[in-house]
Design a protein around this nucleic acid. Structure first.
Lengths: 280, 280
DNA sequence: CGGGCAATTGAAATACATCAAGGCGTGTGG
DNA sequence: CCACACGCCTTGATGTATTTCAATTGCCCG
């Protein structure tokens, strides 16, 4: 049994509880909501072309044909081109006004803004199924650098084709509004975190956010997950220096809340970590 | 000659250079772009009903009739209700999912997020013509507190009416997307400022941003402008404590860059202030 | 006139940055 | 296969930015 088939059999509670599942049930699954909410992460890394049949974004953007014909899904006339890029390489240059919108198929990337003197702030980490910038769907958006953290495969779509598709379907537009609001809410929360929380809070929250994000995508919630970030990524996301990140990660580990080894992270004491993070 | 007529005669370079002016020229002025970009601030404070005939938002949302019939403008079937609220009172509660969208007609307000323990972060200051939250136009958006800083008059529109209007006109939708992207870009810049800039930089930048915002609205660029913010507002916007804000404002004044007296601020040495702010 | 909010100022505390050195893993070229 | 360089992480010592605490003043408003 190959990994893809294995994944197809997955039918975990966390998946059913997600918004995407809810929408499938309601027979009104939409392109970007689905793309944002969940996709088949691990499998994409192995074989994107096969695995994408599981990815909601594929069915709507990659030209795939839905198998549940009765559910109201129909094939969409958009297909992007697939690209692979090694770790540390740029996917989008800050000065570029591209006519394309990339969607991550496998691997981790990050979107950041930089100052001339080198200081920079990570705005969001991008995992499989993430649209590189929701705002860039309808108008080119400059200033952000998008960089691959691991090796990344992604699909590039012509903005013009996406626009034509979206304007033709009110349901997709509605879903886009929701996505946009979610992105804005995350940006506002980020500002709150950076302006008003201390280092340990920020780092604990980042870990918890990433853990939830990964959980949504892998369809199972495990205490251990893939964690390819370097400490300088964490530093740039939390507005700290790598040195200080190291010290605080050390404390969290010595306190038995988390363990980082190799390129994976384990949450050992979730409730303590939630407390430090001042979660919800 | 009354102030309103006076303002109409104003034809300053800074106004002509703005995007709104450009759109008027092109004969395709749209509701929200205009509302966001500029309006007749000072006059609104005096007499909103009169002055709103100058406010782009009025022509499109308040049911006003455009005087340039040839320009492609037409009266829109939406009218909001006018409200007045004293300083320090809430316009929108964080838990509220209102069916209304307010637009500021006069005065200053602020939109912020708060933590249970009282820490809070100002996301944006709202001046006349500003939609209280662009994201809330199409879906209710919770979590933000909107508070009047000075006495504020504002118009409340039914979200449902706005939605119907917007979906019927692709040109308005396009403009809305642009507005969204601008709001998102500001949120991202805020994160960069909070995460990666030092206190003096943040404060200098805030002052310059507000100065530009006021200039757009008053149609004239003066060195002195109305500045009703208390130091705790600046603190909450820059992620600092009021004490520290006081110290840095003191330094900026002693260095001869600005002067704050009464409720107005004067930029005495713009180039030095730009340098401190690391502007553009 | 009193009371409370706002601003200023100085002293002390603390959170975070910077600097510097050493270890560890990984890829690379000899 | 080894030596080596390089990036990454760790750790301690020191420096600095910002907060906290506290006292004082002015001001507005009732």
């Amino acid at each position: 049994m190959n990994p893809v088939q294995d994944a197809e059999k997955q039918d975990s509670p966390s998946y059913l509880a997600g918004q995407v599942a809810a929408e499938v049930m309601a027979g009104s699954m939409t392109a970007f909501g689905a793309a944002e909410a969940t996709t088949s992460t691990a499998m994409c890394a192995v074989s994107c072309d096969t695995a994408c049949t599981l990815c909601p974004a594929y069915n709507l953007l990659c030209g795939g044909m839905s198998k549940e014909a009765d559910g109201g899904l129909s094939p969409l006339p958009i297909s992007g081109t697939l690209h692979t890029i090694p770790a540390r390489r740029l996917i989008l240059h800050p000065k570029e006004w591209s006519e394309f919108v990339p969607i991550v198929c496998s691997g981790w990337a990050m979107s950041s803004i930089a100052l001339p003197d080198g200081r920079r702030q990570v705005i969001s980490f991008l995992l499989p199924g993430d649209i590189v910038s929701v705002g860039s769907l309808l108008a080119p958006l400059s200033g952000h650098t998008v960089e691959a953290i691991t090796e990344v495969t992604y699909r590039k779509f012509k903005r013009q084709e996406i626009k034509e598709l979206l304007f033709g379907r009110v349901d997709l537009l509605e879903r886009l509004f929701t996505l946009w609001n979610e992105a804005k809410a995350r940006a506002d929360q980020l500002a709150l975190d950076l302006g008003r929380r201390r280092a340990d809070e920020r780092i604990a929250r980042l870990i918890l956010r990433l853990s939830e994000k990964v959980a949504k995508r892998s369809l199972v919630r495990t205490q251990t997950f893939d964690f390819p970030l370097r400490q300088r990524h964490i530093a740039d996301a939390t507005g700290l220096t790598p040195v200080h990140v190291s010290k605080i990660l050390g404390e969290l580990q010595r306190a038995g809340m988390i363990e980082i080894s190799g390129r994976s992270l384990t949450i050992l004491n979730a409730s303590e970590l939630h407390r430090v993070a001042d979660w919800r």
